[in-house]
Design a protein around this nucleic acid. Structure first.
Length: 781
RNA sequence: GGGGCCGUGGUCUAGCGGUAUGACGCCGCCCUCACACGGCGGAGGUCGCCGGUUCGAAUCCGGCCGGCCCCA
């Protein structure tokens, strides 16, 4: 018998064209493939997508890779049968955009009316946001773009304020005056998490101090301008040189104040002379020493970064001017022993990159220290992918030393919702649920709740931007706005994020959500590594090694980029980004395409009587599906990408397809055999497409719709490993045998089609017919 | 100063208790009717260094060296 069928591939082009992706994007859009159905009966899977910040820096390729992987998580969850909410949010509050506007327009925050400055920031954000959204869409993110949220929207900010009001009423927010990190350049207090350290060349000044009872000592300091705030000199009790100083007093040069000399472990004998002056406040250690030793602080630096009255002859100077001047003054008194150039770690503001000062200010604080144990416990109830990154969170919680100062003296951020009574000063809070701007609005009440006074002054400060970002899981799950949904959706399924913001975003979210709900905000946390440059170094504007993702997406298309992402970055580990490797990843898509093109010429029988070769590849397919699904369960896309690639290329295409080619093309007489090959070819291809769909959504959907269904592959589930795996025992032997025949033909200078005399080993006898046809074997004997 | 991760052929990478995976690059042959962004074959490493555990270590333990990242 012979079925007369004209074999014609349904895929015509010889390779996958990235241009085809754009048609698919439009199609997905119009079909509303990825819309979240809130009332679905399926199990919910909410992803607390990191709302990226359009800060003015190019959104670099590492970020695009990161969001692409998050999209793979969303697609994975859908194919596992969840109703997935993959929200698209944009973080638009806080200092970064203000700094960007100040730099670009060469203005200061305070040089424009507040309203005007806010308007400019908002417009700037719109532009930057549009670029970012283009990248996200083009990369094939299956997020809910139609309902994207912004953290500076009325709805979001009113929720931020509502949580502030709630925590204030719970007594977890308090006002206090204490030394804080202050950035004179940004003009605001910042939190520890916003402080970076930079190694800078610094002068270490060796200064001669008199002792009150005669004699002298030499004290070294990098902050001589703080001499006027020196309240003690310390040495290490193990330091042999200074045992005689115990109980003595030193006289501070220029200022003439007598201060105690105290033994303290904070003094390092090897630094400078081993004698250190303690002043308010050179660094965080000084703050602790002042507290511990009960010293009285002297404030030398004002909010404008200039020296105050107490600085005496330095008054009015900037910190740097004062540092130069004090050395001159000391020199003229013969008190400078030497000046040493050293490399010194200087605390700087992560936004402005300028040195910070520690200045006591009155700010609002959110309690965190007293919750340490509870937070550790709540954190321990979240699953981490990979587990080893849990340590980043634990270490940070254990290292907390101060409560979180949350008020900021900036404009483009959520306002602190407080009006102060003009007669008694009492802070009056409005009811939660609305967005308040106390700096320009009158309060929604008429009487002070404390004294009944009727006149108020609105708070002008805003909140740290992390106060907003830290409630994203509450925002997306309907907290305070849709209690019914909230009960089903919270804690949300997953927080995906980079390891670099564990101490900020993850920690703050845990803190705030725990305070508000008494529960951890996530069931699981997925922590990815960082995208580094070809040399393995961090990408940064200053190094000039930043890669813009847009030209890459345009040149190679999203799927090549995505497949590269998946096979390059193993879960949680840093990965290197190079265009050559992205390009190389494209080869696999060509291979996939051509395998599909070959298979596409055959009819699709519903069933068939399988031959051993067919059973063999289906055995391997079952094993593959098992491994791949395990990778997907841990959101480790490296596993599916490399396993499918290896299977499809090195087993399916190289061996199975070649073994069955004659049979499938009808060159052997047996029509049953052809059907079996067709059935198997399609089964394997379909399964591979499904297994790759979360990683390369474009090419798989294109092939799927061309060959199998009008309906998108993205509405399907993952395949199940439903074939007997016993035939995998033949794999090694088959591969070896085929290679051996190829090698021999090569040695004999035969083309692959020419006949060869060779015997098929006994162990492979089940495959004899296919192998004979494949290699054109003339059996011996 | 503390913490994390890593150190495998020229480059990158898998493996994490039984003498090493794949990619890129390189060399040679081949346009074999899915694919030359392809196929086949080949050269190339003893897994940073030292010591220990073990019948056996790239794989476990300890120390050292080097790189990267984070924190103080």
């Amino acid at each position: 018998m012979s079925e007369t069928i004209k074999l014609e591939p349904k895929l015509r082009e010889t390779r996958w064209e990235p241009k085809l992706e754009e048609e698919l994007l439009a199609r997905w859009d119009s079909e509303k493939l990825y819309v979240f159905r809130k009332d679905s009966r399926r199990r919910l899977f909410l992803i607390d997508t990191p709302p990226p910040y359009p800060s003015g820096r190019p959104w670099h390729i590492g970020a695009a890779a990161h969001y692409t992987q998050i999209d793979m998580i969303a697609r994975t969850a859908r194919m596992m049968g969840y109703e997935v909410y993959f929200p698209i949010g944009i973080d638009r509050n806080g200092i970064p955009v203000e700094r960007f506007v100040e730099r670009e327009m060469k203005i200061r925050l305070t040089s424009l009316p507040r309203e005007e400055f806010i308007r400019i920031c908002s417009q700037t954000l719109d532009q930057l946001e549009a670029e970012m959204l283009w990248i996200m869409k083009r990369a094939g993110l299956s997020g809910d773009f139609e309902n994207k949220y912004r953290t500076d929207s009325e709805e979001y900010r009113s929720l931020t304020q509502a949580t502030f009001i709630e925590l204030f009423r719970k007594g977890l927010i308090y006002r206090a005056s204490r030394p804080n990190n202050f950035c004179p350049d940004c003009g605001t207090t910042i939190a520890d998490a916003e402080v970076d350290y930079a190694e800078m060349p610094t002068d270490l000044v060796y200064m001669r101090f008199d002792l009150a009872d005669g004699g002298e000592i030499v004290v070294a300091s990098t902050r001589p301008e703080l001499l006027g705030a020196c309240r003690a000199v310390i040495y290490n009790s193990s330091d042999e040189r200074y045992q005689h100083l115990d109980g003595q007093r030193a006289v501070v040069p220029i200022y003439g104040r007598e201060v105690p000399i105290i033994a303290h472990s904070a003094a390092r004998p090897e630094f400078g002379t081993g004698l250190v002056m303690v002043c308010s406040y050179g660094d965080r250690t000084d703050v602790q020493l002042f507290r511990e030793l009960g010293l009285e602080e002297v404030i030398l630096i004002g909010l404008d970064g200039r020296m105050l009255e107490a600085a005496g002859p330095l008054k009015g100077m900037t910190v740097e001017e004062a540092r130069r001047r004090i050395v001159e003054l000391l020199s003229s008194e013969g008190r400078v022993v030497k000046v040493e150039k050293i490399m010194h770690q200087v605390p700087i503001c992560e936004r402005s990159n300028t040195p910070i000062e520690i200045i006591p200010m009155e700010e609002y604080y959110l309690t965190q220290l007293s919750l340490r144990e509870e937070l550790l416990d709540a954190g321990s109830r979240m699953t981490f992918y990979p587990e080893f990154h849990r340590q980043l969170l634990v270490d940070w919680i254990n290292s907390l030393k101060f409560d979180w100062p949350i008020s900021r003296r900036r404009y483009y951020a959520t306002e602190i919702p407080i009006w102060y009574c003009k007669s008694c000063g009492w802070p009056n809070l409005p009811p939660p649920g609305k967005y308040y701007r106390p700096w320009k609005e009158s309060p929604p009440f008429s009487r002070c709740e404390k004294c009944g006074g009727g006149e108020f002054e609105g708070e002008e400060r805003t909140l740290d931007t992390w106060v907003d970002s830290s409630i994203s899981p509450l925002f997306i799950s309907g907290y305070m706005r849709d209690e019914k949904f909230f009960r089903r959706a919270y804690p949300v399924a997953l927080r995906p994020q980079g390891k670099d913001i564990v101490r900020t975003w993850l920690y703050y979210t845990l803190l705030r959500c725990y305070q508000l709900t008494g529960r951890p905000p996530f069931k699981s946390v997925w922590v990815s590594g960082m995208g580094l440059d070809e040399k393995g170094e961090k990408m940064s504007k200053s190094k000039g090694n930043v890669i813009d993702p847009r030209p890459v997406l345009e040149k190679y298309g999203a799927d090549i980029f995505r497949f590269w992402c998946a096979q390059e970055a193993s879960l949680g580990y840093d990965f290197r980004i190079s265009e050559a490797r992205i390009q190389a990843a494209g080869k696999f898509l060509t291979k996939l395409w051509n395998v599909a093109r070959y298979v596409s010429q055959f009819p699709q029988p519903k069933g068939a009587r399988l031959l051993p070769s067919d059973r063999w590849i289906l055995s391997e397919l079952s094993a593959l599906i098992g491994e791949v699904l395990n990778g997907y369960k841990e959101y480790n896309f490296f596993i599916p990408a490399t396993k499918v690639r290896n299977f499809l290329w090195n087993l399916f295409a190289s061996h199975y397809v070649e073994m069955t080619k004659m049979r499938a093309l009808g060159r052997t007489s047996n029509g049953q055999g052809a059907r079996a090959a067709w059935y198997t070819l399609h089964t394997v291809l379909k399964s591979c497409l499904l297994l790759l769909a979360p990683i390369t959504p474009f090419v798989t959907d294109y092939i799927w719709r061309t060959l199998y269904s009008e309906r998108s592959i993205h509405l399907e589930r993952f395949p199940r490993p439903r074939w007997d795996k016993s035939y995998t025992k033949y794999t090694e032997r088959l591969v070896f045998f085929n290679s051996d025949v190829w090698r021999r033909k090569k040695e004999m200078n035969l083309s692959l089609r020419e006949p060869i005399r060779i015997s098929v080993p006994e162990e492979l006898s089940p495959f004899r017919e296919d192998l004979v046809a494949m290699h054109n074997i003339v059996e011996e004997g």
